[in-house]
Design a protein around this nucleic acid. Structure first.
Lengths: 232, 232, 232, 232
DNA sequence: AATGAATGAGGCTTCATTCAT
DNA sequence: GATGAATGAAGCCTCATTCAT
């Protein structure tokens, strides 16, 4: 099972870690480091206090720089938020896609996707918050953004379900609606988990959630019993 | 099929209708009328623009009163929002409970709950928005509120599932987690529906969603095929 | 000769004075008074420090109110400036038109216009500054505004000159260009006068300027010698 | 007719052209070249957007250098502006003086001055803007600067008029005031011309303006008819 | 009860200037 | 000499809340 590594865990963001933690040498490197610092700070503050309740001053303070410094690297507060949502979603999506690509048959693929999401969120609690909870706190400006985000994951699920239908693994169903429902179910489970103070590991929900979802689309009980996470 | 009644339909809020629409006579009556006017106005504006993006001035304008008038009836913008969320949730919950009480066996009860939620939301699109989308826009302060709201409905579902388990209608499962997942699935379907410009009636999702949810907890296919909505 | 009267002189703005200076009684009256207060304050600050160098805070302080108070009465800083320029120009223009209407023959009309402008500016030194000097300090946003303002007065002059040409009082000339040149000459004389610390009365320039302008369009020396200001 | 020469035409600034356009060799030369580059860039930006609306960043970008680079060559944004106004005015003044020196009799001298100003402005539209329009956009700080500039040209004109009076070419008049009025007339004509999108050549205003100005001080119609621009 | 005016804290953004490299 | 990053003081505007009438 995937375990997220590197300092990014401690920082809570799915960032691309530099090879070492030595102080950056070149100007360009230092600039990029500061940019990351700001993103991290914004990430933390956004996830803790929501978009509207986060002042740029707070981001600056958390990044140990000045307000002007923030505005040197980003044109607006909104741009910071957008970049955060976009890159975080991208990283999650590509992580899922990589995991899915390793599986050949439909159920296995769905399994891999679910497991990856839960495990990744498990390692990046606040990332989950940014993507699935606080995005809505950003107000109507970001409804489109959030909309697209949810659609994207729902569509991804629907795609796997379509494959499964074609392969005859599950009976024909409304895969679009089912994708939405699955996403909602996962989303809510993660969201609840986020709001608990000292939660059990998110992965413990996997078996139940897996069985629930697979059953919901009519997968054989036999296959459901064959939990791949027990093999790896 | 349920049809929400009263003037609340035209106003979009699940309000308690006064017996007649004659101008209120007593002082107290007039005061309550104004209060309702403000709540309605706030409801509309909150659901359209979100909590943070709604100015008290806008509420006052929509209620055809003045800012001072609003503050006479409510101590705080937050108080208006809280009252709105609480009473709206109360009304939905009691509506569901009444519908459920009419059913005797577990699956039927779950069915009734699901149907009531979908149908009520279908008739009160903006109410759904208030409860399930915009509540998050209110920011940190209201996370607890939202939290409680979601918990409440998830627990309600879990309760029905517990009954079903006890009755032997479904095999033993983690009903708490399943309640959360169900709620999430429904929530997401409603939320997507809210964001579409000219959506198909929400009730059209009922058969698919119903089958999905019932299957997910291992209800017999035979029972699933017996759709109660076809009887009523 | 016209002598500007009322408190507006002391305040430097061509405002419409209320009949008495008693404290305003009704709410509406008080509101209008505050509005005027703000306009006066803005007027003073704009004329002293220019548009860009005037902070809304300064206007508020000068008007003995708060920043929020200013924004209650005006939507933007720009709106204050626009209103100031527009109403000031309007008042000057109508003053000129009234004076001109009393004269019947072309030269007399031009005379009246020139005299009115000089005399009005003489009584409202800072008004002149707002219209003819500081308007340019407002930056490109207001070029159109300033443009229109200068055009308006140049066109007014050109109109009188056209009448004079038609009446045969002066030979045919390019009246449009001449209007611009006249306006420029007057404008510059006034502007110079504005910048002097303790200037001689502006009206002392009248005879020279009058002769200069009339000669420039070929008016008979005999008519020029017949200075109407000596009659009144 | 005068044609401004050198690369300054293409760049719009009355700059001192270096003999060739080969890359500068010595350190000092390179430094001066960069300085000029910055002045040119500042000139362009100031004339297009005004002083306050021009950011040092824009100047740096237009000069293809960095903000730090600008501050190496100039202590202050204001210093750039001052240098620009001063040198531009100097160049125009000396150009006028050279043209005037070629004429012997007073009317011819005034003629030469007027023609030089119009023709120079005609060839350097943006220079005119810098001197006569945007200088005011600089705000309070530069009122003195602008003041001095206008005074200087008005005094120059007054000087020529004094000569004419002494020579008996024109009757005695208030030459100081007349200088101001002439300058104002010319200034306004140029300013209007600057604000038109696709104006006729500025020189076309010369005959009318010339006649207007000469008549205004009582020059013989015979002499006015004798337009020197027809001879050259 | 209601009104509209006022308050003032706080938010986002700009930008001249400084400075380490 | 040059660069780009950083700073921090303003600046404009918003808005929940208060209050005299």
């Amino acid at each position: 099972m995937y375990i997220p590594t590197g300092r990014s865990v401690s920082r809570g963001r799915l960032s691309v870690a530099r090879s070492k933690d030595r102080p950056p040498a070149t100007q360009a490197e230092r600039s990029r480091a500061r940019r990351e610092q700001i993103l991290d700070a914004a990430f933390h503050t956004f996830t803790r206090r929501g978009y509207r309740d986060t002042a740029v001053d707070e981001i600056a303070a958390a990044a140990e720089t000045s307000k002007g410094g923030v505005y040197f690297h980003f044109p607006t507060k909104e741009a910071i938020f957008r970049e955060l949502v976009r890159t975080t979603a991208d990283r999650l999506a590509s992580k899922v896609e990589r995991a899915v690509a390793l599986q050949t048959e439909p159920i296995g693929r769905a399994d891999a996707a679910l497991r990856t999401v839960l495990v990744t969120f498990a390692g990046h609690r606040t990332m989950a918050r940014l993507l699935f909870v606080d995005a809505m706190g950003a107000g109507r400006v970001f409804n489109a953004e959030t909309n697209a985000l949810h659609d994207r994951f729902a569509a991804m699920i629907a795609g796997y379900l379509d494959e499964a239908v074609e392969a005859g693994t599950i009976p024909p169903i409304d895969t679009a609606l089912t994708g939405v429902a699955w996403f909602g179910a996962i989303n809510e489970v993660v969201a609840r988990w986020l709001l608990i103070d000292e939660p059990a590991p998110l992965e413990t929900t996997y078996p139940t959630l897996r069985a629930l979802l697979l059953r919901s689309v009519g997968v054989d009980e036999a296959r459901i019993a064959d939990d791949p996470s027990l093999h790896s």
